[in-house]
Amino acid sequence: MIMLNGQRADLHAGETVVAVLAHLGLDGDARGVAVAVDGEVVPRDAWASFALGEDARVEVLTAMQGG
């Protein structure tokens, strides 16, 4: 089961980060966005090639107002 931002997502092992972004309605070069999988940064240039493992925990983050 793939967890995306703390919730179950209709994604499967083997899918790439680009697929995750598409799932969120984002294109593959979304600016202002960062992705972590299982507690590690997935660099932007690896988004197209990085494949999710079983039970991957994916975090997709962006800017928010904050002190």
């Binding site: 984002l26 966005v33 960062a34 962006t62 928010m64 904050g66 002190g67």
Partner: peptide, 8 residues
């Protein structure tokens, strides 16, 4: 700025 989960 802060970094938080994206709200689609």
């Amino acid at each position: 700025v802060a970094l938080r989960r994206i709200d689609p």
